[in-house]
Design a protein around this nucleic acid. Structure first.
Length: 949
RNA sequence: GCCGGAGUGGCGGAAUUGGUAUACGCGCACGACUCAAAAUCGUGUCUCGCAAGGGAUGUGGGUUCAAGUCCCACCUCCGGCACCA
């Protein structure tokens, strides 16, 4: 047997796999199905990057594992082939995007094969293939027929560089996600998907999928649901009611009586509509212009709030009928809610800031005081006090350092009504011992009072509690125990009033819920109740508001899926009948962007339309956002060649996807869109499930040796081809998964991959000590008798490793799976001979990670089958069991000795054995153990009392 | 500012989910083989200490027989969001 030659082996087996069509599965057999899916790549000219190799290897390992476990595994791959880079390339070089794309796809396929990834490329989904996008168009039409698609003109994000509209979700910090150009606002007609119809479903559905928690949270935040009310404010000018109204969305209708002014976003349409009534129009117009020039970033970075009052018009607060001023200010955004707010400065920090600056009235309408008692407490040690108070459910409002004594700390606190008794108990408990230990200077006492009608009142406590407080107070300030004839003294209450003054001056701006005050007939009820009642009272409507907006899918680009719509000579939109699908992309176009869709150039496209629909009919020139293509591709794989349906009923049994692996960068858009498609198609009745991906895992980024992101501009991009050439696919695969947990970042350090290479070389070499099982004894084979014992040890470790690796793969903890196989190999290395079956079992374990070398060795052992078609070795429970355990013996929690016990030794015997240890006896110093804790096969902890000497 | 994640040797990381911290790999040091080097193999490698023993999982406190793991406060780094009414 020669040296391990990765190149030769990998080429040999990749060819054999191809010839034997190992990737073929029977797609009609869904009885024992498992669907593992990768996020398909965009076929860029740069080829695969290292991030792909990690994620695709991760799924390939899982696929091979599940396959060996007897599942029929669908593990497809495809290409998200529409998109801007190919089009931009075409603009530059005149090479048609279809050509570029095909070339790139072939390169990707070559690279994937060279990594040993088993995909069936006869079954690939390519989104730019008419056979694929026929169904993208078909689904569009189903959505259209079911009212999920609409057209409207809208202020949209316009990228002047890409000459196209950018979805809200694709704008990053006011800049185009792809090219970084500043986004302008432009009015453009376009088609929208009603994703907001599914906002609640998109939130609720997350409950039933196995996804990373942070991904779920991010999706929920992205959807951004808030519950509140829509309330209408009437307007007046010169005491005359105007026809226009201002509608606001508020999450706090309970604070309506505190709304002392209103703010419109400068871009709010009402502002210009009211031009004639606005006395200071010049000033207002100037502010609007200024705002237009500000990017969103400018607006949010502004340290100080700015705005302009609309002179001459007022709004009527529908709750108390008071006239309140109206401002425009850029801290209110046009794009969220209704673009207008009612400002309640007492209960919103931003409104308060603005009110302070423009000297607007602040009316408190929610009191948190009446449901709490406010108090001051001297702490008994900072951390401890904080902890105790929080545990009791007491809010700490503020920490006040004072100079009343060395190291004193005073906290202002709020005590919920129902906690008062336990609070008194706490201070009594904490102060008494401190007092007796003469730490009185650091201890504290409390005063309890509450605010009511602008007055401070001592609260009504039971006589008993009141006495307790008084006594403690007295003790503290007089520094001696309560005399028998104790009576409340003046000095105590003097302190009280000082505190009262310092405290009472504070105006507390809070956004808590509480008890309503200054709210006429609603005074005295709580916020939650008031929300409903006040909304009802002013004729408003309880509703939800979402951050999520409908999905704008129209793009003025060439290289995308044509929207299957034509317009009548009167301009009416009509779906293209199904029989004409796929509605193909014309080829006679110029790619140069002109701000209008390049499809408008095509003579053929126009002629085709007129030929089918009649003279004067025109096609829709826009193409679809490429996120549409990728929003449903996973539904196509099971039945990719079906020309009659996007997927037949029998093949739908493959769905949904069992495991989906891909980058965390798709947390928002792609995953949200795919979920929307699934839910929409479910609602229409096209599929029977409403969540596309049951289990989702992300792979981390691959960074360079310095831990930096790889990028072309930095010139630190590692080329997978080169790595495969140098180290072999098996090493690259295994290293990627060994270097870090799947979801963590992987540092690509060439110096470290040699560890994996050495490991594979060891695996290779160990074959030479494998013997075929026969009747001969070890001695007869020329090996020492001790060999058998060692072999049994290896067998035991082997079965433990099988157990470990199986569990780790199942949980995608590949890094520890690899390390445990290394441990096994290190042990195998030490024995003179290895049983063939044991070695074969090991090869099977390693085969998902390093499929080539294991296959080669498998063959060299005389097997004619393919190792990937073998069944996964189950571990033998008895063989994986340990006969003896080393357990740690602790005295007072510190490890002092180690004893060896046999499996099944009962607790008493373990104790007996432990106490026999001289070391333990030494540490026990002849004392009786207070307590002995035994954790089976792990640890024995002996607790002795050594406080007294 | 808010949300999320993380902090363990020189480095990547492990720790049976509260039970012997530092597995595995890299690197480094020494040794063997060699004329020599590479490769390979062996030994060692958290820290203080001759040892007995002590100290270490960002910092401080707490719960527990027992804490990297749980609780509280703080610090640092990474990612995401951005005045959401």
């Amino acid at each position: 047997m020669g040296k391990y030659n990765h190149k030769e082996i990998e080429q040999k087996w990749q060819k054999i796999w191809e010839e034997n069509k190992v990737v073929k599965i029977d797609k009609d057999d869904t009885k024992n199905k498992y669907y593992v899916l990768d996020m398909f790549p965009y076929p860029s000219g740069d080829g695969l990057h290292m991030g792909h190799t990690e994620s695709y290897t991760a799924s390939d390992v899982f696929y091979r594992f599940k396959k060996m476990q007897g599942f029929n595994v669908l593990h497809p791959q495809g290409f998200d082939a529409f998109g801007l880079p190919a089009e931009n390339f075409a603009i530059k070089t005149k090479v048609h995007p279809a050509q570029t794309t095909e070339k790139n796809i072939n390169n990707y396929i070559r690279q994937m094969k060279s990594l040993g990834l088993n995909y069936d490329f006869d079954e690939q989904a390519v989104t730019s293939d008419p056979k694929y996008y026929k169904w993208t168009q078909w689904i569009f039409e189903q959505f259209y027929k079911n009212g999920l698609v609409y057209k409207r003109t809208q202020k949209t994000n316009w990228c002047s560089s890409c000459q196209t509209v950018i979805a809200n979700e694709q704008v990053v910090n006011g800049e185009c996600e792809r090219c970084g150009t500043k986004i302008e606002q432009k009015e453009i007609p376009g088609w929208f998907f009603k994703i907001t119809d599914f906002a609640d479903d998109l939130i609720d559905g997350l409950d039933k999928v196995d996804w990373p928690e942070h991904t779920k949270k991010n999706q929920i935040n992205w959807i951004g649901k808030s519950e509140g009310a829509k309330i209408t404010f009437k307007l007046t000018s010169n005491s005359q009611q105007l026809t226009e109204n201002i509608e606001v969305f508020t999450t706090r209708p309970d604070t309506l009586f505190g709304a002392t002014y209103m703010v419109l976003a400068p871009e709010h349409s009402l502002v210009t509509e009211l031009k004639d009534q606005i006395a200071n129009w010049g000033e207002v117009e100037k502010y609007i212009e200024e705002t237009k020039n500000k990017t969103e970033l400018d607006r949010l970075e502004a340290k100080e709030k700015t705005g302009v009052k609309l002179e001459g018009i007022f709004a009527i607060n529908p709750a108390n009928k008071e006239e309140i001023p109206i401002f425009i200010a850029d801290y209110v955004l046009g794009g969220y809610g209704t673009g207008a707010i009612m400002a309640v400065p007492a209960h919103d920090e931003r409104d308060f800031e603005f009110a302070k600056k423009y000297n607007l009235p602040v009316v408190q309408v929610v009191s948190i005081k009446d449901s709490f008692y406010r108090s001051v407490v001297w702490g008994w040690g900072e951390n401890e006090t904080v902890k105790d108070l929080i545990e009791l459910g007491i809010n700490i409002l503020e920490k006040v350092e004072t100079n009343t004594g060395a190291g004193e700390i005073i906290f202002k606190i709020e005590i919920p009504k129902d906690k008062i008794e336990s609070f008194v108990e706490l201070i009594e408990k904490k102060l008494k011992p401190l007092y007796w230990n003469e730490f009185i200077g650091e201890s504290g006492i409390t005063f309890i009072f509450k605010h009511k009608d602008n007055k401070v009142e001592k609260i009504n406590l039971s006589k008993e509690t009141e006495d307790k407080i008084d006594r403690l107070t007295y003790e503290f300030f007089n520094e001696h125990p309560v005399p028998k004839d104790y009576k409340r003294k003046e000095s105590v209450w003097k302190h009280y009033s000082e505190v009262e003054n310092g405290f009472y001056k504070d105006l507390i701006i809070h956004s808590e819920k509480g008890m309503l005050i200054n709210s006429e007939q609603f005074t005295g009820i709580n916020s939650e109740e008031a929300k409903q009642k006040i909304t009802e009272f002013v004729g408003g409507e309880m509703t939800s508001n979402y951050r999520l907006r409908d999905w704008s899918i129209s793009r003025q680009r060439y290289w995308g899926c044509p929207i299957p719509i034509v317009y009548s000579p009167e301009g009416e939109a009509q779906l293209i009948p199904e029989e004409y699908l796929p509605w193909t992309l014309p080829t006679d176009v110029d790619f140069k962007p002109t701000g209008v869709s390049p499809l408008g150039d095509s003579k053929e496209f126009k002629e085709r339309t007129e030929k089918i629909f009649g003279k004067g009919w025109t096609p829709e020139y826009d193409t679809m956002d490429t996120f549409v293509d990728s929003a449903w591709y996973f539904l196509r794989y099971p039945d990719i060649h079906n020309e009659k349906e996007f997927c037949s009923e029998t093949r739908k049994k493959w769905l949904p996807v069992d495991l989906y692996i891909g980058g965390a960068e798709h947390t928002y858009m792609h995953l949200l869109f795919a979920r929307f498609f699934t839910k929409a198609m479910h609602k229409i009745g096209l599929i029977s499930f409403d969540e596309p991906f049951l289990k989702l895992r992300h792979q981390g980024m691959v960074l360079d040796a310095q831990g930096k992101k790889m990028s072309k501009s930095k010139g630190n991009v590692v080329n997978p081809d080169e790595m495969i050439k140098r180290f072999g696919a098996d090493s690259v695969r295994t290293y990627m998964l060994f270097a870090a947990p799947l979801e963590d970042e992987v540092i690509w350090n060439e110096n470290n991959i040699v560890g994996i290479y050495r490991f594979l070389e060891k695996v290779w070499k160990i074959k030479s000590v494998v013997f075929a099982s026969s009747g001969a004894t070890a001695e007869e084979r020329g090996n020492p008798a001790s060999s058998l014992e060692k072999q049994n040890k290896v067998k035991n470790l082997l079965h433990k490793t099988i157990k470990k690796v199986s569990g780790d793969i199942e949980n995608l903890k590949y890094n520890t799976a690899v390390s445990s196989m290394m441990i096994l190999i290190n042990e195998m290395e030490k024995v003179e001979e290895i049983n063939k079956e044991d070695y074969e079992s090991f090869l099977k374990l390693l085969s998902p990670f390093a499929p080539h070398i294991t296959q080669e060795l498998w063959e060299q052992l005389g097997n004619e089958s393919l190792i990937q078609n073998e069944s996964w070795t189950e571990y033998n429970k008895d063989l994986a069991k340990d006969d003896t355990y080393k357990i740690a013996v602790q005295v007072n929690g510190k490890v002092r000795d180690e004893i060896e016990i046999e499996e099944g030794t009962d607790e008493e015997d373990v104790k007996k054995k432990a106490f026999e240890s001289k070391i333990i006896q030494k540490w026990l110093e002849g004392k009786e153990p207070k307590k002995v804790i035994y954790v089976k096969n792990r640890i024995l902890n002996v607790v002795v009392d050594n406080s007294n000497k």
